[in-house]
């Protein structure tokens, strides 16, 4: 959104067509300001630009981290596309997108609307705020620490299985994270728990700027809660929905900490994800070239996905203007 805001700049002269002002403004945007960009630019090149270039180069080599890298062309990439673990890890990324984007966004929309509309209005706003805090709490904690607590809860002798015993479902006792069949769904459930608070908080804030008169008018027309949710709430908070979907998707593609804490990608790669796969290849298998290839592919995917999102958003905004 900010991108489109700054792009409003060139349109300015059209609305204020005084020819005297334009040359002075051009002079203002001169060399002096570059100085302020300098420290940031140098840091940026050293910490992001050069390492990124390094990873790109290393992805074309075979290297254990000691001695000199051997250039091998695209061998790492051909190996990558035949590597079953690689495909598994990307398949698991889809699962992560479901658990970190799709479910939290949908559930978050519903929860935010309910908290704002029903709890906030028909009960005290403080009740809504307290409930919101409960949903948001996991978001402020170090996700790795939360992951370690969950890892213990889900152990065969952990609290979850004991809870099943107490409520008479002892037959369902299971090694939730240790069984390849249940590990991924279990990690997904934990990720929903981690992620849900973010959309709830953003959407509740977004709802505050929706004109209440829209709802009152709809209510007078006899629209029920669900109608109002669909016809007013959803279209009104679309910009926020977009931001949430984009940031959560990027987070899902990059997810590392929870997988590290819960399963270390296991059992049998059932919960492996690209970023853990890359980490493991770098620092445990010491295959720096191959790890770089994994990271490069992940980076490209993220760039494509982010570009797609921004393009969709831009197109949506343009269509809105035309309507």
């Amino acid at each position: 959104m900010a991108l489109t805001q700054t792009s409003a700049g060139p349109q300015r002269p059209a609305t204020r067509p005084e020819p005297v002002r334009t040359p002075r403004k051009r002079r203002e945007g001169g060399a002096g300001y570059w100085l302020y960009l300098l420290p940031g630019a140098i840091l940026f090149v050293l910490v992001i630009g050069v390492p990124l270039g390094g990873t790109l180069y290393l992805s074309l080599t075979k290297w254990s981290g000691v001695g000199d890298p051997t250039f091998i062309g695209f061998d790492n990439y051909t190996r990558l596309f035949q590597d079953e673990v690689f495909w598994t890890s990307f398949k698991n990324t889809i699962a992560m997108i479901v658990a970190m984007v799709v479910v939290p966004t949908l559930l978050g929309l519903l929860l935010a609307a309910v908290l704002f509309d029903v709890i906030g209005r028909r009960f005290k706003p403080r009740t809504a705020a307290a409930l919101r805090a409960a949903f948001y709490l996991p978001q402020v904690l170090p996700v790795v620490v939360a992951g370690i607590v969950w890892g213990w809860i889900l152990r065969p002798d952990g609290a979850f299985n004991s809870l099943l015993d107490v409520i008479g479902l002892g037959a369902l006792r299971h090694d939730w994270l240790g069984d390849p069949d249940t590990a991924l769904p279990t990690v997904m459930a934990v990720m929903i728990w981690v992620q849900i608070g973010y959309p709830v908080v953003v959407f509740m804030a977004a709802l505050q700027r929706v004109d209440p008169e829209l709802y009152e008018a709809a209510e007078v027309d006899g629209a029920n809660w669900f109608h109002r949710f669909r016809s007013i709430t959803l279209p009104q908070i679309r910009p926020e929905t977009f931001v949430v979907a984009l940031t959560c998707t990027i987070a899902a593609l990059k997810v590392f900490g929870p997988v590290f804490a819960l399963t270390r990608g296991g059992p049998e790669n059932a919960t492996n994800v690209p970023s853990y796969f890359a980490y493991y290849t770098f620092f445990k298998k010491l295959q720096v070239g191959y790890g770089s290839a994994i990271s490069t592919v992940l980076t490209l995917i993220i760039i494509v996905v982010a570009g797609l999102f921004i393009w969709l958003q831009y197109r949506g905004e343009r269509q809105d203007r035309e309507v």
Partner: peptide, 8 residues
């Protein structure tokens, strides 16, 4: 992704 920077 931080993995794209971490090794260098």
């Amino acid at each position: 992704p931080q993995e794209a920077l971490i090794y260098p």
